[in-house]
Design a binder for these strands. Structure first.
Lengths: 342, 342
DNA sequence: TTCTTCAACAAAATCGATATACCTCTGGCA
DNA sequence: TGCCAGAGGTATATCGATTTTGTTGAAGAA
């Protein structure tokens, strides 16, 4: 009666054997019990507040019901919803999320490997897009792995968003406002950036327009990257009237760079970005964005991973519901404004 | 040879008993071994890449080497550094961080309690300031608990920052720029807000000035809270020339509200906030802030918690190194600017 | 009536690491 | 010679849950 109740305590209280209680609680199909017995056990469980000791259970089942979550910056604003989704899906399916330090991911030897060898996690959720491709592969051979926000790479399953479509919608928005001089500020190299650039070009093609390669600028995913990319573009003498930014966080940098250069938004130039984080509406000016279902991405990634852990074959997935949606705010305006003021 | 190596495998390879290997790896003081034997064991460990199965180890030692981390929004930008600090401290001391869903924290029955009863975590890191006081108490009676970013409440240890001093520095900054009409946009009710308001008043007192109670506006910690608080203040007819905002995230809302009201920053009003997140320099205008050592807070909180888990008495702590530091950016200017333009 | 066949459980063998309680030499000393 | 104290280990009993293999009694079949 000192620590928490053990299986044995429950069994004794209910007057049955521990094995019976275990089978009952785990829903063993091959078990037949009288209602009476079942009730007695359930009452004992409730009375003692019994919860199986996870260490013992893990040891026996060689399963930890824990999955590792490695995000480059857990606190990337975009990941708020993703983490929430992952968390809830995991909780719902009885698993916990272990936070992994991505800085460790690229160290050698991976302090990470210790976690895997210690059998502390059943599977791994890795953020795609940032890390180089070698990393996922080295893990996916050791345990079920799902790459979040990136298509699968053959070795590990991938769950991704409609990146291309989102960028296309963003681009279409400014094109339809009359802009023709449209810059693309890319994210870090990788599938997500490629997909978004594809969407960018598609919007042009569908309108029988031609984009200018001079207005492409390589960037990264954070605000400073967006800032620097935009500065480089301006220093190259380009003066686009609209910017499609691969990511709302780096769009913050774009806005800053434009403001610093004395370019008014949306007076002199429009800015639209992919993803709709909490701060978009709080920026000056409020940022026009195309939202993507990050919560669903988190949920789905966990589900795919847990399915894989339960033995299903790795399965790639693209989250299309809810679809990307344009959220018009103050950072975009018609080209006439730009032209007139310039 | 199928799964990962077990203690027994190592022992066999080294030609010793499993117990010896365990005692050696765990640094049993009462053990004496020949160099030769020690080497053989170490070589076997290295060769097999042996890492103790954590479930088995946990079961035996009744310790999971895992601590729960509950932050209101893990992805709150302010927590980026905090999480990094916590992560690194935990890793260094051999513990892992389990992400907890704070929404669950206030549910009843706590899905959380299951985690505790399942003995999945050795201790709990709770975010202070948000959650009401009853919550920490209900947990701290069940397992070691540390409240992060809040002074201890008697039942649980607390690790906090120099909130008062930070607010004082922020306030002193605008007072010294000549502002006298200074508003205080508070955070959510709680110790952190109280401390910061205290610092605000202290800056006035030390300069033999008197603050105006009319310029206090209750708020919250997120951007929308800051926005709404500022709007309320303006609707009350107040036109302060400077704003001290309890938190950099809500300061974003303040900036937005001012811009929306056509009040130029820093032309018509200055804004300074506590905490220096990544986006401060990317705002328009760049936000003047007072930084606080969040990384250290994370590190220290984990250390205090782990000490407590090892049996030390709960101990409150205030992180004072590095000290709060004023980071002057574009959102603050002398009062002359404001006066002249109005 | 005797053998099957279930229903309804119980017993016992794991899972892998750790900690405590033994052993077994060898050398030194009275 | 006999005894004792370490040095240098080994053997074994847990930790608590799960799972496989048994066991028992009673109802139906032959």
């Amino acid at each position: 009666m000192s620590g928490p109740a053990r299986l044995r305590d429950v069994a004794e209280l209910a007057g049955v054997s521990p094995g019976l209680v275990s089978r009952l609680l785990n829903g063993d199909e091959s078990l037949t019990v009288r209602e009476e017995t079942r009730d007695a056990v359930m009452r004992a469980v409730a009375e003692l507040g019994y919860v199986a000791n996870s260490a013992a259970s893990s040891l026996r089942r060689s399963r930890t019901d824990t999955i590792g979550l490695a995000l480059d910056h857990v606190t990337n604003p975009l990941f708020r919803e993703l983490v929430r989704g992952a968390q809830q899906a995991a909780t719902k399916r009885g698993s916990a999320l272990l936070l992994l330090d991505v800085e460790d991911l690229t160290n050698d030897p991976h302090p990470f490997t210790a976690l895997i060898n210690a059998r502390r996690i059943d599977g791994l959720l890795l953020q795609g897009g940032y890390s180089d491709d070698a990393v996922p592969a080295s893990y996916s051979s050791q345990l079920p792995t799902v790459i979040v926000n990136s298509p699968g790479d053959g070795t590990a399953a991938g769950v991704s968003l409609q990146d291309s479509l989102a960028a296309e919608i963003a681009t279409a928005h400014v094109l339809d406002l009359g802009h023709r001089n449209v810059a693309f500020i890319a994210g870090a190299d990788g599938p997500a950036t490629e997909a978004r650039y594809l969407g960018f070009r598609t919007a042009f093609v569908e309108r029988n327009l031609v984009e200018s390669p001079d207005l492409y600028e390589a960037g990264g995913w954070d605000a400073r990257d967006g800032f620097e990319a935009t500065v480089r573009l301006l220093e190259r003498g380009q003066r686009p009237t609209a910017y499609v930014v691969a990511n709302a966080v780096s769009a913050m940098g774009t806005l800053r760079a434009l403001a610093a250069a004395g370019i008014d938004v949306p007076g002199d130039a429009s800015v639209v970005a992919v993803h709709d984080p909490w701060f978009a509406e709080m920026m000056t000016p409020p940022l026009t964005t195309v939202s993507l279902p990050l919560y669903e991405l988190g949920r789905a990634s966990v589900n795919v991973l847990l399915d894989q852990i339960s033995g299903e074959a790795p399965q790639d997935l693209i989250i299309a519901d809810p679809p990307p949606q344009l959220i018009t705010r103050g950072s975009t305006g018609t080209v006439d404004m730009s032209v007139m003021s310039s």
